[in-house]
């Protein structure tokens, strides 16, 4: 990776990014575009199956991600924006690499050959590679004074077969510090947001999210930053506290740190308006 070079990455947006988290999607494209990285949407991608296929239909959970893998053009990495989609794609690729019978079924089904060298990465792996390659050495510390707690949710937790894969604990802390923000310590950065319990058992989800929000408040944070669109939505819709804490997508703060964000329309899509805070910190006009 070279900071002056431009290159293409296959991009798997996933269902949330394509709809509810449009501001996340747009700010991600903006951020990558600023660094000459072109996100080329995976042609005709389908839903990875999410937790629901897993829960009730083994066959679908096994096969839905395979079609996406078969559509990925060779020679460039496939990046998933959503940590859960990443897990599904990566686990399926690992299983295909290890199981020749599954591989034969796969090639018969999709009429395309399996690419054992396809590199599947989460957005955080791209960021970490960029940091290593010196991409952020010219940061101007624009987020100076912003008191923030990073929230990872379950993205750092993986099934045992992935124990030895790369993980990115601390990356948000490191990046936010480079960007000038004041990163606070707290206890809830890895507490799961509850995913679909916010719909099916709002009582449980509300209680659980309240602990996260209280934790951010106890740490005297002005805002929370999330790495996953689902977490973002759950923290926003279940926050019942007065004077709610704004919640940012990490991609938004990354863009703001480059001086981009004003007038992009991202922040008015938030359920908890972050604009007063951003104005107070002179991050938007």
């Amino acid at each position: 990776m070279n900071t002056s070079q431009s290159f293409d990455i296959s991009y798997f947006p996933g269902c949330s990014m394509a709809t509810t988290a449009l501001e996340n999607n747009r700010s991600l494209h903006t951020f990558c575009g600023q660094h000459n990285i072109k996100l080329v949407e995976l042609p005709d991608w389908n839903c990875c199956g999410s937790s629901s296929a897993h829960s009730i239909n083994h066959h679908l959970a096994k096969w839905l991600p395979t079609r996406n893998l078969s559509l990925a053009p060779p020679g460039r990495p496939l990046m998933a924006a959503c940590p859960s989609c990443y897990l599904r794609l990566k686990l399926t690729h690992m299983e295909l690499s290890q199981n020749s019978a599954f591989r034969e079924q796969y090639e018969r089904k999709w009429g395309r050959s399996f690419d054992p060298d396809l590199r599947i990465i989460p957005f955080f792996e791209l960021l970490s590679d960029m940091a290593d390659a010196g991409y952020f050495s010219d940061q101007k510390g624009r987020l100076k004074g912003l008191k923030v707690v990073p929230y990872y949710g379950c993205m750092l937790s993986r099934p045992p077969v992935m124990r030895h894969e790369k993980n990115f604990h601390g990356l948000m802390e490191k990046m936010l510090s480079i960007m000038g923000a004041e990163v606070l310590h707290w206890n809830h950065s890895a507490r799961c947001c509850g995913t679909y319990l916010s719909v099916t058992r709002a009582d449980i989800a509300t209680r659980s999210v309240a602990k996260i929000l209280d934790g951010a408040e106890a740490a005297r944070a002005e805002c929370i930053v999330t790495a996953c669109a689902m977490c973002h939505m759950n923290l926003e819709i279940r926050s019942k506290l007065p004077g709610k804490t704004p919640i940012f997508h990490f991609s938004e703060l990354l863009s703001l740190s480059m001086g981009i964000g004003s007038g992009m329309g991202w922040f008015r899509r938030h359920l908890t308006d972050p604009r007063p805070l951003l104005r107070a910190r002179r991050l938007i006009a």
């Binding site: 937790s157 995913t195 679909y196």
Partner: peptide, 25 residues
């Protein structure tokens, strides 16, 4: 919800979420 928090903490590397998927089905 299959968040894998428990699997990370398990000294025996039990994939709880895979067990729960099976039990539901």
């Amino acid at each position: 919800v299959g968040c894998h928090t428990c699997s990370v903490e398990c000294p025996q590397a039990i994939d709880m979420s895979a067990v729960m998927d099976t039990l539901r089905q």
